[in-house]
């Protein structure tokens, strides 16, 4: 009689040589146990073979690119492939994105009603960055993120020639582009919360934000050197 867990520990090579020899003898003497050992070995081999196919596949470019250190802060290529794969997304991820869109008005409204510290101000009928957000957009390099406050993601030139930057903090993420001496807010999305954060992180940012970038970008996002040079030129 061999106890179940000991039988499997033997099968997995986890027993000491003495114990293994005892179990081996017991299994050899018992056709039922011999059959069970063969079935489990075969099943485990099948499992290894099936998942081994994944290991043998080429690693997707978007994963490899993350380790090449090309200075880009978020992967736009990924956002594009992500959008193409939208139908493969779980239902609730799409629902969450929709909910985030609906929340924009609420967020913008509450912030606009605020006082001096409000990160977004109306000016001449446009929404522009103010306070800490304005400062982050003007002085923060994505390669040197601040410990607190908004974080800058991508910087790029849009099809009208303006420099645009994505930003994110705990409450919201969005896109601002340089107009005159201001950062005009082009898009604003409710911030990552709870589970949705994993999906956003996995796609290099809020999928809707990445789509807004994708729709307006001319060429590729700036790398770290281009971003620094753009700041030194005053974002023109």
């Amino acid at each position: 009689m061999v106890e179940e867990e000991k039988f499997f520990a033997w099968l997995d090579g986890e027993l000491s040589p003495d114990e293994a020899a005892r179990v081996e003898a017991a299994v050899a003497a018992d056709p039922e146990l011999s059959k069970m050992a063969a079935e489990h070995r075969s099943m485990a081999a099948g499992l290894r073979g099936a998942f081994g196919a994944v290991e043998a596949q080429p690693v997707p470019e978007r994963l490899q690119a993350m380790l090449k250190g090309d200075g880009k802060v978020a992967s736009l290529t990924d956002a594009r492939s992500r959008r193409q794969a939208r139908l493969a997304q779980p239902f609730w991820v799409q629902a969450a994105a929709l909910a985030a869109t609906l929340a924009i008005g609420v967020f913008a409204g509450s912030q606009l009603g605020g006082g001096q510290g409000s990160p977004i101000h109306p000016r001449d009928g446009k929404l522009v960055a103010a306070a800490g957000l304005e400062q982050a957009l003007s002085t923060q390099l994505a390669s040197a993120p601040a410990n607190t406050g908004p974080r800058i993601g991508l910087t790029y030139r849009d099809t009208s020639g303006a420099i645009c930057r994505t930003f994110e903090d705990r409450a919201a993420s969005g896109l601002a582009c340089r107009e005159g001496g201001d950062w005009r807010i082009r898009s604003l999305f409710q911030g990552a919360e709870g589970q949705a954060a994993d999906y956003r992180m996995a796609s290099g940012g809020d999928p809707q934000l990445m789509e807004a970038v994708d729709a307006s970008i001319d060429g590729e996002p700036f790398d770290a050197a281009q971003e620094k040079a753009a700041m030194e030129r005053g974002w023109r």
């Binding site: 994944v54 997707p60 978007r62 994963l63 993350m66 380790l67 990924d78 794969a85 493969a88 997304q89 779980p90 994993d198 999906y199 992180m201 996995a202 796609s203």
Partner: peptide, 12 residues
Amino acid sequence: ADADDLAQATIE
């Protein structure tokens, strides 16, 4: 798709 998202989140 979920698997590669998980792999990407892990690398990040």
